[in-house]
Structure formats: structure tokens, C-alpha cells
């Protein structure tokens, strides 16, 4: 086994809201905790424009600020974040081995809080124009579309929220919704104001079939109005895709029991089928995909991890 610097009581995979909250609890109890993050601390919350429904912030809070605050609070108690991607997990009994881009690491307990990434549409043109007209992050790339026309694809909460955000830059947005609107009532009411102002046009029951452009840029989106059974073409300068999320579970190679969409199953202690491997946040089967619930699950997982470690204090770090 490797030297002690690569061994920890707890390693958390991901540093989104779930893991950062868990880390606040574990480190406050002096449990040595390392978080491994492949992207940005704060996870999806960090790339979200505004979080309006996180309790304690009556006027909402910018995702970036919430993420920075969570990170600061976890670090205040001694959490360490290492920027590394975990590529595999191996249960070696009392120790769990993680292969990462910073080398192999060992932990008595692993918390998986890897959330999810944006799903791709999988249509012609999407890959060709990636970052040159096709985007997945409105807060990152929206500023390039000042005074331009945009298409947003998707009908869920994220698509609606991001379409409204993008009206800060774009002159007009066409929202392409494959079947019917799935966004919450509250968001749909908010959206209606933008529709009434002529800023957003909603195309229900319209699939997105191809993204077409010239050598340099996107020119239009070709879709199908499935009710009328006819092709539609919408001229645009760019396309933002928000068609759902794909669980970040590849690195587990199917070792952890999951549900039909790939979310990880746990018992009532948030522990998976591998003893000592816990799961919290959006990646957990039954998760409600909210920052508040991710944070709550993080806290619960931390307390259950403490109980688990107390029951396993026979494990000693090798010198």
C-alpha cells in the first residue's frame, strides 16, 4: 500500500453541495477528509445563475456565491480539496482504493457525491459546433450572444431557467420542447412573462433534428413539429442544450447497485451495497435534485459516516 499521505479517514468523490456539506460536518468532528473534484467546487450549483429556493436566502443567491461560501466553510474546518478525477473504486475490505489523476488513494470510507453532467442531444451538427455555436452552460457562454438570436433546447426546469437567463444577452430565444413542458408551475408562470414580452417563443411538440451552419458558425436548427408532422427551420446564432442529466457513475463500473437510470441505491443510512461506501446528493437513487436536499443528504451521510467509523475504530493507519 502507498504512504500515509494518500490515506484518509474519508475521501469524498466530487465537491458539489452534497460533499461540501458532508465535509463541513466530518471536518468539524476532526475526521480527516479529502475531497476529489474533477471540475469546479460547488458542482452544478456553481454554474447555475441564481438559486432561488435555497432556504435562508430570501432574495435568492447566485450559484457561484453559494458554491464559494460552501467551499470556504468546509475549508475553514480543515477540508482539503484536491483537483483530481476518480477513475475507479476498488473495495479492498477495510480500505477502499481509488485510482485518480493524482495517483492512487486509500480511504476507510468513501462518499460518492458525483452528481450528474449535461446530456447531449446526439444530433448531426452538435459535435461539429461544440463551443462554436452549441453550448451547455449559459452562465459560461451566454455573453457571446449579446444582441443575437438563440435556440434553447429542452422543456425542464433547467432549460426554462437558462432560457430566461439568456434573455439578458439575446434579442430573442426560441425554446424547442420535444413533447410538453415539464418545468415547475412557478417557472412556467415566470416564463410566460418573457413570452408575453416577445422575448421567448415556445415551440411545443417540436424535436430538434439537426444543427446546420457554415464553416464558421451555426445558422439554423432543423426540427419537426410532431403535431403538424412538418419540418421546421429556425434561424439562430447559437444553440444551448438542456435536455436532462446523465449520472456520473462510469468510474464505478457497475459495482454499486443502481436503479434503471443509473442512480446509486442506498439503505436508510445512505450506505451502498459496499460497506463503507456512502452516497449523497443527485447521484443517489430517490434524490430530489435540489441543492437543499443535496446539502441535507450530505449532512446525514456525514453523521452516518461518523457512526460507521466509530464502529470500525480498530482500523489503524499504517505508519
Amino acid at each position: 500500500m502507498s504512504d500515509t499521505k494518500n490515506k484518509h479517514d474519508v475521501i469524498m468523490v466530487g465537491a458539489g453541495p452534497a460533499a461540501l456539506s458532508a465535509a463541513i460536518y466530518t471536518t468539524r468532528e476532526d475526521i480527516d477528509t479529502l475531497l476529489l473534484e474533477k471540475g469546479v467546487p460547488g458542482g452544478l450549483a456553481a454554474v447555475t445563475d441564481m438559486v432561488d429556493n435555497y432556504p435562508g436566502f430570501p432574495d435568492g443567491i447566485e450559484g457561484l456565491t453559494l458554491a464559494a461560501n460552501l467551499q470556504k466553510q468546509a475549508e475553514r474546518f480543515g477540508a482539503v480539496i484536491d483537483f483530481a478525477e476518480v477513475s475507479s473504486l476498488k473495495d479492498e475490505g477495510e480500505w477502499k482504493k481509488l485510482e485518480t489523476t493524482s495517483g492512487d488513494m486509500y480511504a476507510k470510507v468513501v462518499l460518492i457525491a458525483t452528481g450528474s453532467d449535461y446530456k447531449k442531444l446526439g444530433v448531426p451538427g452538435e459535435a461539429k459546433y461544440y463551443a462554436r455555436g452549441v453550448h451547455y452552460c449559459a452562465t459560461c457562454d451566454g455573453a457571446f450572444y449579446r444582441d443575437k438570436r438563440l435556440v434553447v433546447v429542452g422543456g425542464g426546469n433547467s432549460a426554462v431557467q437558462e432560457a430566461m437567463f439568456l434573455t439578458r444577452f439575446a434579442t430573442h430565444i426560441d425554446l424547442m420542447v420535444r413533447s410538453k413542458m415539464r418545468a415547475s408551475e412557478v417557472l412556467q408562470q415566470e416564463l410566460q412573462k418573457f413570452v408575453d414580452d416577445g422575448k421567448i417563443t415556445v415551440h411545443l411538440a417540436t424535436t430538434t433534428d439537426e444543427i446546420v451552419g457554415d464553416e464558421a458558425k451555426v445558422l439554423k436548427v432543423v426540427g419537426t413539429d410532431t403535431k403538424a408532422g412538418k419540418q421546421v427551420e429556425i434561424e439562430t446564432d447559437g444553440v444551448f442544450v438542456f435536455v436532462g442529466l446523465k449520472p456520473n457513475n462510469e468510474f464505478l463500473n457497475g459495482q454499486i447497485d443502481s436503479d434503471e437510470i443509473g442512480l446509486l441505491k442506498t439503505d436508510e443510512n445512505l450506505m451502498s451495497n459496499i460497506p463503507g461506501v456512502f452516497v449523497a446528493g443527485d447521484i443517489r437513487s430517490g434524490a430530489t435534485m435540489q441543492v437543499a436536499s443535496a446539502v441535507g443528504e450530505g449532512a446525514t451521510a456525514a453523521l452516518k459516516i461518523r457512526e460507521y467509523l466509530e464502529g470500525h475504530h480498530d482500523i489503524q493507519l499504517e505508519a
Binding site: A131, R132, G133, C137, D141, F144, R146
Partner: peptide, 21 residues
């Protein structure tokens, strides 16, 4: 900062070939 200096977006795009920051 392209929010403060939006006229420099073309420069960023020309340098990187990508409409992203």
C-alpha cells in the same frame, strides 16, 4: 471581463476559436 468590455468578444473568439470563457 467581457461583461464590462463586450466589444472584445471577437478578440477572444479569434484567439481561441471558441465562444466560451
Amino acid at each position: 471581463n467581457l461583461d464590462d468590455e463586450p466589444h472584445r468578444r471577437q478578440e477572444a473568439l479569434a484567439i481561441s476559436g471558441a465562444m466560451t470563457v
